[in-house]
Simulated assay, not measured.
Amino acid sequence: MSNRLKNIFKEVRRYIMDEKLNFIKKLSFFDSLSDEELNIISNISKITTYPKNSILYYENDINNKIFFLVSGLLKVYKIDKFENEIFLYHIHKNSLISELTTLLDDSIHCFSNAEFIEESVVLEVDFSEFKKEFLSKFTLVNEFIHEILLKTQQLHCVVNRELVFDATAKVAYTLQNDLEMFNTLKRHEISFMLHIQPETLSRVLKKLKRNNIIDSENTDIVILDKEKLNSIIRG
C-alpha cells in the first residue's frame, strides 16, 4: 500500500473517530469524563443510525451492549397473547435505552420491544468493557444508578396510567410529560397509545380547552395552566 493510501485511510479513520466523539459528547451521561476516558468509550463503542419504524430489539432478545439514544425517538412496547401492541413509554434523546436487571452477567435480556418513531442515532457500548473500564473503577456509577432509577420511575408511570388514571388524567399526564411527542403524532395514534377511544381523546381535549388549561395553535397543543394540569394528574 502506498503512503498516499495509508494517509487517506488515516484521515478517514480520524474523521470517523472525531464524529463518534461528537456524538458521545451529546450524551450528558458522559459529561464528567476526561478526554482520555471519552476516547476509551469511543474505542469500545460504535454509532449506528436507524431509519424510522426499524426495530432496535425484540422482547426476549439477548445482547451484550448497552444502548444510548443520541437523537431521535424510540417507542417501547409489549405484545399480548392476542398479538395486540401494549404501549409502555417513549425514550427521548440523551437517554439510556437498555433495560438492566443485573451487573453480574454480561448478557442483557430484553423485556420489551423497541421501535424507532423517527430516524435515530444510537451509541452502542460493549457492556463487558464498560464494566471493566468504568464501573469497576467506580466511574460513572452515580450516572448509571440515576438512569436505572429513571427506568423504574417510567414503569411506575405505566402502572399509574394503566391501573389508576382515568381518560382525563391519562391525557393530562401525556401533555405534561410528552407534549412534543403529543404534537408530533396523529390523534388516532395517541388514543391507541393511551388505550382510549379517539372520541374520548377529542372530548377530553375539548374539556381542557374549555377550562382554559390548554389551547391550540394550528394543530399543536399549548399548555396554559400547568398547575391545573397537575391537579388533574394528582386527582
Rank of each mutant, 00 (worst) to 15 (best):
Q153Y: 14
T184A: 04
M181W: 06
L155R: 15
L175P: 07
E189P: 04
K170T: 02
L163F: 15
L163N: 11
E189H: 03
K186R: 08
I190H: 00
T174A: 10
T184H: 06
V158L: 11
L155E: 15
H188T: 10
E180Q: 13
Y173T: 06
L185Y: 05
L175H: 06
F182M: 01
A167Q: 07
E189S: 07
A167H: 10
N183S: 02
N160S: 13
L185A: 01
T184E: 08
Q176T: 10
E180Y: 04
Q176R: 11
L163A: 11
I190P: 00
A169D: 00
N160W: 14
A172W: 04
Q176D: 09
A167S: 15
Q153V: 14
N183W: 04
R161F: 01
R187K: 11
I190K: 04
T184S: 07
K186E: 00
L175D: 09
V159L: 12
E180R: 05
D178W: 04
L163G: 04
R187W: 00
V164Y: 14
Q176N: 12
K186G: 08
E180C: 06
V158T: 13
L185G: 06
L179G: 03
L163Y: 14
A167F: 14
A172L: 00
A167N: 11
K186L: 06
N160K: 15
N177V: 05
N177G: 09
V159G: 14
N183Q: 02
L175Y: 07
I190T: 07
H188P: 01
E162F: 08
L163V: 08
E180W: 02
L175E: 01
N183G: 05
A172Q: 03
K170V: 03
N160P: 00
R187C: 06
H156D: 15
Q153I: 15
C157H: 15
L155Y: 14
N177R: 11
A172S: 10
R161L: 13
F182V: 03
Q154C: 12
F182K: 03
Q153L: 13
L155H: 08
L185N: 00
K170P: 01
E180M: 06
F165H: 09
N177L: 07
L179S: 09
D166C: 00
L175G: 09
T184Y: 09
H156Q: 15
T168L: 05
C157L: 15
L185F: 06
D178M: 03
N177S: 11
E162R: 14
I190E: 03
I190D: 01
Q176I: 04
R161S: 09
V159H: 12
N177T: 10
E162S: 11
Y173C: 08
V158F: 07
Q153M: 11
D178F: 09
Q176Y: 06
V171Q: 04
I190Y: 01
F165G: 05
H188R: 07
Q154T: 14
Y173M: 15
N177F: 10
N160R: 10
C157R: 14
F165Q: 03
V159T: 10
T168V: 03
I190Q: 05
V164A: 11
L155N: 07
V158G: 02
V171T: 05
R161I: 10
H156K: 15
H188G: 00
T184L: 01
N183C: 06
T174Y: 08
T174P: 01
Q176L: 14
F182D: 01
